[in-house]
Design a protein around this nucleic acid. Structure first.
Lengths: 222, 222
DNA sequence: TGTCTTGTTATACCTTTGTTCAACAAGAAC
DNA sequence: GTTCTTGTTGAACAAAGGTATAACAAGACA
């Protein structure tokens, strides 16, 4: 295909088009991480190969080892980016909302935080293979395990704070950290079941189940 | 190592030990499936190679393609065996218990079925890589997806029946199928969280969360 | 003991994998 | 236009992958 293109270019008589473009390192790295992420969610760890990724990114094979220690190093970056996209940004958003909305009813903040887990942005089936692969990597790689622990802990803490705020405002005694942890487990479990068999539930049913678990302890939120 | 052994045998002066033993096909297949399962749970799909499996099983490389269509065919058999071990046998046991214990308090049957999910036999961290790999295979292979759907549906049905029996005996209105589905999701989610970060909960805490979810709707079971 | 069947081995084969590196050229600087 | 820097290419390489198959030998049978 490359040959065809360059032949056409030569026959055009004009200056031949550049065979490649130089990109700022940061931008090139981001491009490659995105392409690698697509490969991982498409074919799992078996689809995460130098050939596939370079083809997806439209670059030559040598670039992966130029920008990353190794293919495994790229996988770690894919983990970081995915984790940020799905968890860290979640936390930041919750923090921002709470800081901005001081004085607002805590029920609103909590309901929004709960509901956001079932928004199509998070609760979708496109990334099953991606996360199965990343979890396997977490189980194997101690560095990733530590990062995972830290991020999930932060998210659990955020959720627990919002739960505790509602419970306090309503004079209820609630084990907020435990409830937050169980809620997250339920969300992950529902998402997993949905991905493996989409006939067993709908995102709406999942959201209902999630609210039900919290509301059973702190009372109605909607 | 093989050389050393056979040399020793020769020097012993007696008849040399057989270089291999012939096994009945059914038994040999079972041995290979077990070895392959160990490889998968140890190293994930990357550890599922002809070399590793044959080394684990103590056989030569040619035998996999002799007994299975391909390495992927062996993976399907690993799936079947694991699924049977973790789900199908679960269902059979529940069925048997219910058939044998006609007239027994349904609370006992339900409590036992719930608790069995958190028994070390099921709720243990050794099989994370195994199940992550199998789930990835389910997502990819339509035949496995259908098998998965069927087996999980049977298990959900079993659980829902036991829940409905308790609810009926107590005059409570409960959406048993939905509750069963949410419970299974919670169990899977808790197990996954525990595997990825064992500091976040204990099997006892998981069991408590599981009972809590059911008991919130049908009343105390213990 | 000798023969036969067939489960098992071991090798050869080709493909795909990740990595390296010398040569190349895009694009900024002058 | 010319020079220089360096991002990028693409071929070469060894290692590891799955599969096919001819040779072997274990164990049953006579």
């Amino acid at each position: 295909m490359t040959d065809t293109l360059s032949n056409i270019d030569k026959k055009r008589g004009g200056k031949k088009a550049p065979r490649f473009s130089r990109e700022p390192p940061q931008q090139r790295r981001a491009m490659m991480i995105e392409a690698a992420t697509r490969c991982l969610s498409r074919g799992g760890i078996s689809g995460f190969t130098v050939d596939a990724i370079c083809r997806e990114a439209g670059i030559s094979r040598g670039l992966i080892n130029h920008y990353f220690d190794s293919l495994d190093g790229l996988l770690v970056e894919v983990y970081r980016a995915s984790m940020y996209k799905n968890v860290a940004s979640h936390i930041q958003e919750a923090k921002r909302r709470r800081a901005e909305n001081i004085g607002w009813p805590p029920e609103l903040a909590l309901a929004e935080l709960i509901g956001s887990n079932f928004a199509p942005r998070y609760f979708n089936g496109d990334n099953l293979l991606l996360w199965l692969s990343l979890w396997a990597e977490i189980a194997t790689n101690p560095l990733l395990k530590a990062a995972h622990r830290e991020l999930y802990q932060a998210y659990r803490g955020e959720l627990a704070e919002d739960i505790a705020a509602v419970a306090a405002a309503r004079g209820r005694i609630v084990d907020a950290p435990t409830l937050a942890r169980n809620f997250i487990a339920l969300v992950d479990g529902l998402w997993l079941e949905w991905c493996l068999d989409e006939t067993v539930l709908t995102p709406e049913a999942a959201e209902a189940a999630g609210f039900e678990m919290i509301e059973a302890q702190v009372g109605p939120l909607r």
